[in-house]
């Protein structure tokens, strides 16, 4: 997942706050109760973890933190869960059918997402959706292994088929 040669946005104070809340939430989930002493420990631990991981905060910089990002996030999660179930039914059908219907090829798709976080989420989504597996990310281009690539498809049509449904929601909450 190389990110050199693309300009990364700088993480701001809100991103630090976001990470703090994320770490604190993780702490509370692991603790599993609302005990006051545990909460106080969580406040301190989350602060230490946030400060210690500040040099690596740039991964979060692509995140758009605003109320308007919430709706795209929920839409994306919905799309993602539907795609995940579809992927499994599709894979089960292929695996169980006697003729093993496969037409695999490595294809290229383009992304308009600029931040490394956005590309990471996109690549992960592609891996978990029907018949596709992200093999490599090179700047704007993702290499995707596709079990059922239509013959003679070019970059434009594969991009449309694989990434567009995620990207339209993703660009609402990551850069």
């Amino acid at each position: 997942m190389t990110t050199k040669s693309i300009q990364q946005p700088e993480p701001g104070f809100v991103h630090g706050l976001f990470l703090y809340l994320l770490v604190f939430t993780l702490w509370m989930l692991l603790v599993g109760n609302l005990d006051t002493a545990e909460m106080a420990a969580g406040v301190v631990v989350a602060l230490i973890v946030t400060l210690a991981s500040r040099p690596h905060l740039s991964i979060l910089a692509g995140l758009i933190i605003s109320p308007s990002a919430l709706l795209p996030l929920l839409r994306y999660l919905g799309t993602f869960i539907v795609a995940l179930v579809q992927a499994n039914l599709d894979m089960a059908r292929r695996v169980l059918s006697p003729s093993l219907p496969l037409q695999p090829a490595v294809v290229e798709v383009e992304t308009k997402l600029k931040s490394s976080l956005g590309r990471l989420i996109l690549a992960n989504s592609i891996t978990l959706t029907p018949g596709t597996l992200t093999v490599d990310v090179q700047d704007q281009v993702l290499l995707v292994h596709w079990v059922d690539a239509p013959p003679g498809s070019d970059r434009v049509s594969t991009t449309k088929a694989i990434t567009s449904k995620f990207e339209q929601h993703l660009k609402g909450f990551v850069l």
Binding site: L84, A87, N88, M91, L102, P104, L128, T132, L133
Partner: peptide, 16 residues
């Protein structure tokens, strides 16, 4: 038939 397809089958099925 090959390792890439095996990864595909393995990843998706095991995740869900």
């Amino acid at each position: 038939p090959d390792v890439y397809n095996r990864i595909q089958a393995g990843t998706k099925a095991v995740t869900l």
